[in-house]
Design a protein around this nucleic acid. Structure first.
Length: 806
RNA sequence: GCCGGGAUGGCGGAACGGUAGACGCGGCGGACUCAAAAUCCGCUGGGCGAAAGCUCGUGUGGGUUCGAGUCCCACUCCCGGUACCA
């Protein structure tokens, strides 16, 4: 009987669903395990990145279920967002219709993978039942002072008359029409995540099961730095504030730099000698994104013609504008101290500005800016102090003089949630001429996103052009008023969706707090490394807000985080736009979901990027054919007593149980598969040479249990064929027998001066003295050491002896 | 630019500071076959050698150590993020 993956996979997918194997409810009698893969954007077809993600997630769902946990593994859709709107503009299909078609296709494909979810809990963020609670949450934040409106720049395409996402701006041009993009200020909504900066920073320490690199990235993103803010007077008129982490170096300030957008710039350049040059520079930098500006190799800038007075010593220094100072960080202005800052050094060198060191570098120093500690010099009353003392002294002095103070600055900015787009959750606010901004009453939620036929932007977003949507009455005075027409960033949806899974159909509240009280926190969260900062930080923030509201029992949503690498082909990320996709659906048909799952588990460390090998699935398919033959094929058993051969094969099986269990716990799936391959190969040899039925059956039983979370369909089919009448998915995970896994002998290597010169089989229990004596007595080794002085012998029994000779 | 990560055979990768290259892909040779496919068996980092074996070898250059792919320092290149892709 051949291995017919199609019928087997369909059969078991239907069985699992019919028998509700993976549908769960709160059950206080069992330990819970909440397992979530980041919900996908419904792009229309699953790709290898999804397969990788869901294979890992499903492996864990099944493994933890077998270990006796009450496992919740839900699935939903991150279905608002830019791509649906772009597709609509290009193809004319309405985002709602397009999105729902794509959800339908993708859920069918996910089911074909054999990845099991509690589909009763499925939702999509574009559904009013869901985004209603986005709006409710917005109102809660608004009332708590955590949502506010402020001016912020957007990318504006003057030809298309629309706002562009950063990724739609290519080299300063609109990706659609190549028109130069300009910055335009709009009043937009923000969430005040900076209020939570310290809590978000401090609690990173609690995330002990997160990858270190993600924790580091989040710490750096929040970017708390302690320093001082002080005022610098402009020679002539006006003043500006600067923030610095190095107030101790203020005597070394030889110039100042303002961001091109700094409000003072206009008055400084007006009428100056460099006015024309400065205006050109400002216009040029406005066409650049922050990234482009910072990425410029050499530091550029323009002298404003104005001078500032160093408050510490009264010396006048030139004021420049330069792109390397960003308006969005600190005060948008810096004191430049080239002696102690490398960027300032490069700028000063380029524009021939004086450099004064205020920290004495070591004698052997041959670098440029010196950033480390040392005695302060050239700094009047700070001379001789170390940096900590100097900082304290200068801040005290600024305090006394009334020009500055100690300040804590964060790199983190408030979260801009406004999008001038159609396909998102409407922000539930109303503008009234009399009453000003008014929140939509909660009982009127959701503010429904209207079904608009003409969503091509023409100067304003489609929502703003829809009079029926815009025109309303003021909730407080009942006079005519207009609705807010911005929609929310889709990161708002993804910052709380995992709470909704606990109570997905609740029509009365965002959720009944008792439900997530059982399931939260998420025990395992799995997704791409590209979400290391934004999504994960926003989710942590909203969880803390929900905690403060009394709706969450936890302050951190994700106990364990696993970030997987990308799938690449020919050195590039697999993507439709690059035309290098390998469609998983084709492989379901040709090789089967089990073979594809195994290949994803096998292809490399889950954290790393993995290169797609077109022939790789052939290998795992071949392995499953071998498993099939072992489970189903004819074996000529011999009726005999148990022998060393049987004990050895059982030992291999039990060592495989130990290895696979350890590897799953460590997320080293790529080494668990080879362990199973080795077991299958040994079992093939065993089956060909006078096998004993009891031994064989037991080894196969263990193999199928281990294979069950990885290649579930074939494992279940063979389990049933071999006469077990239980549902394999609900069988207990196997344990290993400590006696059986012991090995009697081991290969000991003998080195001379660190080079391997002999290998010998020794008893596992060999003592250090025995190992040394044995090694020194070997004929091969004598040839290397005779005539030399043995200086030292390092023994790591039973694995290694290293003989150091003179 | 800044933050984070990575680099090991022809390819994906394995390797508690202790046998570098497990396992798989590909390739070569053989068995089976009229033939092919499938399957099975063997070989497969470079150099030298008839062989035993020796020697070089984990991006580059240094260092620590009895011993370094692994730890430290300095580089190179590639990838992720960089706040409106999600």
């Amino acid at each position: 009987m051949s291995y017919d993956h199609k019928s087997i996979e369909l059969k078991w997918q239907e069985r699992w669903e019919a028998e509700k194997v993976f549908q769960v409810t709160e059950d206080a009698s069992k330990p819970k395990f909440y397992n979530v893969c980041m919900y996908p954007y419904p792009s229309g077809a699953i790709h290898q990145g999804h397969v990788r993600n869901y294979t890992y997630g499903d492996l864990l769902t099944r493994y933890k279920t077998m270990q006796g946990f009450n496992v919740l593994s839900p699935m939903g859709w991150d279905s608002f967002g830019l791509p649906a709107e772009n597709a609509a503009i290009d193809s004319g299909i309405h985002p709602k219709i397009n999105t729902e078609n794509q959800i339908s296709t993708m859920s069918t494909q996910i089911k074909q993978l054999g990845s099991m979810y509690d589909w009763n809990r499925e939702f999509a963020s574009h559904q009013p039942d869901f985004y209603r609670w986005d709006q409710w949450l917005f109102l809660e934040l608004y009332e708590r002072g955590l949502a506010y409106k402020a001016e912020a720049p957007v990318n504006w395409c003057p030809k298309d008359q629309t706002v562009l996402a950063n990724e739609q701006v290519i080299d300063g041009l609109c990706e659609r029409c190549d028109t130069p993009v300009v910055k335009k200020n709009l009043a937009q909504w923000f969430f005040k995540i900076t209020d939570y900066a310290d809590r978000l920073l401090d609690d990173i320490d609690k995330l002990e099961h997160w990858p270190d690199r993600v924790r580091t990235m989040q710490r750096n993103w929040i970017g708390r730095s302690e320093g001082a803010a002080f005022t610098i007077n402009v020679d002539g008129n006006g003043s500006f504030d600067v923030f610095t982490t190095r107030p101790d170096t203020v005597f070394g300030m030889t110039f100042c730099v303002l961001a091109p957008e700094h409000p003072l710039v206009e008055s400084l350049i007006a009428g100056s000698e460099t006015e024309t040059e400065a205006r050109e520079y400002i216009a040029a930098s406005q066409r650049q994104s922050d990234i482009e500006r910072m990425a410029e190799g050499d530091k550029t800038g323009v002298f404003t013609g104005a001078f500032a007075t160093n408050p510490a010593n009264g010396i006048k220094v030139p004021i420049y504008i330069a792109g390397y100072v960003l308006m969005g960080y600190g005060t948008g202005a810096i004191m430049a101290v080239p002696g102690q800052d490398q960027r300032d050094w490069e700028f000063a060198t380029k524009y021939e500005i004086e450099i004064i060191r205020t920290v004495q570098p070591p004698d052997e120093w041959d670098g440029e800016a010196y950033l480390d500690d040392g005695p302060t010099i050239n700094s009047d009353f700070l001379d001789g102090l170390n940096q900590i003392e100097a900082k304290r002294r200068i801040i005290d002095w600024m305090d006394e003089e009334g020009i500055g103070e100690a300040t804590i600055q964060y790199r983190l900015r408030d979260w801009l949630i406004s999008r001038q787009r159609y396909w998102g959750s409407p922000i539930p606010m109303v503008n009234c001429e009399t009453c000003g901004l008014a929140p939509v009453p909660r009982e009127e939620l959701p503010v429904l996103l209207p079904f608009i036929d003409d969503y091509v932007p023409e100067g304003k977003s489609p929502l703003a052009a829809d009079d029926d949507f815009v025109n309303t009455t003021c909730p407080s005075c009942d006079e005519p008023a207009t609705r807010e027409t911005d929609t929310m960033d889709t990161f708002v949806d993804s910052s709380w969706y995992y709470f909704r899974y606990a109570d997905p159909h609740n029509g009365e509240a965002i959720f009944d707090p008792a439900k997530p009280a059982y399931w939260m926190p998420i025990d395992q969260y799995i997704g791409g490394i590209e979400h290391a900062v934004l999504h994960l930080l926003y989710a942590r923030f909203i969880t803390k807000v929900l905690f403060d509201m009394g709706l969450s029992t936890v302050e951190e949503p994700f106990t364990r985080l696993f970030t997987q690498g990308m799938i690449t082909l020919d050195g590039a990320k697999m993507s439709k736009s690059k035309g290098n996709v390998v469609d998983p659906v084709d492989l379901f048909a040709s090789h089967g979901a089990d073979s594809l799952r195994l290949f994803h588990l096998f292809m490399g460390p889950p954290t790393d990027d993995a290169a797609w090998n077109p022939n790789g699935v052939d290998g795992t398919r071949r392995f499953l054919e071998r498993v099939w033959k072992l489970g189903w094929g004819e074996v000529a058993f011999v009726d005999r007593e148990e022998s060393d051969v049987d004990r050895e094969i059982l030992g291999t099986a039990h060592r495989t149980v130990r290895k696979v269990t350890d590897d799953i716990e460590r997320f080293h799936f790529n080494t668990a598969i080879p362990a199973l391959m080795i077991l299958a190969n040994k079992l093939s040899d065993y089956a060909a040479d006078e096998p004993r039925q009891e031994t064989y059956d037991e080894a196969i039983r263990l193999m199928l249990l281990l294979l069950s979370p990885m290649a579930p369909h074939i494992a279940h089919e063979l389990w049933e064929m071999r006469g077990y009448d239980t549902m394999l998915a609900l069988e207990p995970w196997p344990t290993w027998d400590e006696q059986l896994v012991l090995e009697e002998t081991v290969t000991m290597i003998v080195q001379v001066n660190g080079k391997v010169r002999a290998r010998v089989e020794v008893a596992t229990g060999i003592t250090a003295a025995e190992a040394e004596e044995h090694a020194l007595g070997l004929e091969k080794i004598r040839g290397w050491i005779d005539g030399h002085e043995v200086r030292k012998v390092i023994v790591r029994q039973p694995n290694l002896v290293n003989i150091v000779i003179g």
